[in-house]
Amino acid sequence: MSNFRGQDRMELKALVDYYATESDKNNQDCYVEIFRPDIKLKVYFNGKLGMTANDVQDMIRQYKAFGAAKVSFHMNGQQSLDFQDDTHATGTCYALASLVNEENGKDKLTVHAVRYQDKYIKVDGRWWIAERDQFFEWTAFPSLS
Results as ranks from 00 to 15, higher is better:
Lys42Trp: 00
Val43Asn: 07
Val43Ala: 10
Phe45Leu: 11
Phe45Val: 10
Phe45Glu: 02
Asn46Val: 06
Lys48Ser: 09
Leu49Asp: 03
Gly50Leu: 11
Thr52His: 09
Ala53Leu: 11
Ala53Gln: 08
Asp55Val: 12
Asp55Trp: 11
Val56Gly: 04
Val56Ser: 08
Val56Asp: 03
Gln57Leu: 14
Asp58Glu: 15
Asp58Tyr: 08
Met59Pro: 01
Met59Tyr: 12
Met59Asp: 05
Ile60Gly: 03
Gln62Asn: 15
Gln62Trp: 09
Tyr63Phe: 15
Lys64Ser: 07
Ala65His: 12
Phe66His: 12
Gly67Pro: 00
Ala68Lys: 14
Ala68His: 09
Ala69Tyr: 07
Ala69Trp: 07
Lys70His: 01
Lys70Met: 02
Lys70Gln: 06
Lys70Ala: 01
Val71Pro: 00
Val71Arg: 15
Val71Ser: 08
Ser72Val: 06
Ser72Cys: 06
Phe73Gly: 12
Met75Trp: 10
Met75Gln: 15
Asn76Met: 12
Asn76Leu: 10
Gly77His: 15
Gln78Arg: 15
Gln79Trp: 00
Gln79Ile: 15
Gln79His: 07
Leu81Glu: 00
Asp82Arg: 14
Asp82Ile: 07
Phe83Asn: 07
Gln84Glu: 07
Asp85Asn: 15
Asp85Lys: 10
Asp86Val: 10
His88Asn: 14
His88Asp: 02
His88Met: 13
Ala89Val: 04
Gly91Cys: 12
Gly91Glu: 01
Thr92Asn: 11
Thr92Cys: 13
Thr92Gln: 13
Cys93Met: 14
Cys93Asp: 00
Cys93Phe: 00
Tyr94Arg: 15
Ala95Val: 05
Ala95Lys: 06
Ala95Cys: 14
Ala95Phe: 00
Leu96Gly: 09
Ala97Val: 08
Ala97Ser: 11
Ala97Trp: 01
Ser98Arg: 11
Leu99Trp: 06
Leu99Asn: 09
Val100Gln: 03
Val100Gly: 02
Asn101Ile: 03
Asn101Met: 03
Glu103Met: 11
Glu103Arg: 15
Glu103Pro: 03
Glu103Thr: 13
Lys106Tyr: 01
Lys106Leu: 05
Asp107Thr: 05
Lys108Leu: 03
Lys108Ala: 04
Leu109Asp: 01
Val111Lys: 09
His112Phe: 13
His112Asn: 15
His112Ser: 13
Ala113Asp: 05
Val114Cys: 08
Arg115Val: 13
Arg115Ser: 06
Gln117Ala: 11
Asp118Ile: 10
Asp118Ala: 08
Asp118Val: 10
Lys119Glu: 04
Lys119Asn: 04
Tyr120Glu: 01
Tyr120Ser: 03
Ile121Tyr: 05
Ile121Ala: 11
Lys122Glu: 00
Asp124Gln: 13
Gly125Glu: 01
Gly125Ala: 02
Arg126Ala: 05
Arg126Met: 09
Arg126Asp: 00
Trp127Ser: 04
Trp127Glu: 03
Trp128Gly: 04
Trp128Asp: 01
Ile129Asn: 06
Ile129Leu: 09
Ile129Phe: 04
Ala130Trp: 04
Asp133Tyr: 03
Phe136Glu: 04
Phe136Asp: 03
Phe136Tyr: 12
Glu137Gly: 05
Trp138Ser: 06
Trp138Arg: 10
Thr139His: 02
Thr139Val: 12
Ala140Trp: 04
Phe141Ala: 14
Phe141Cys: 12
Phe141His: 13
Ser143Lys: 15
Leu144Phe: 04
Leu144Trp: 05
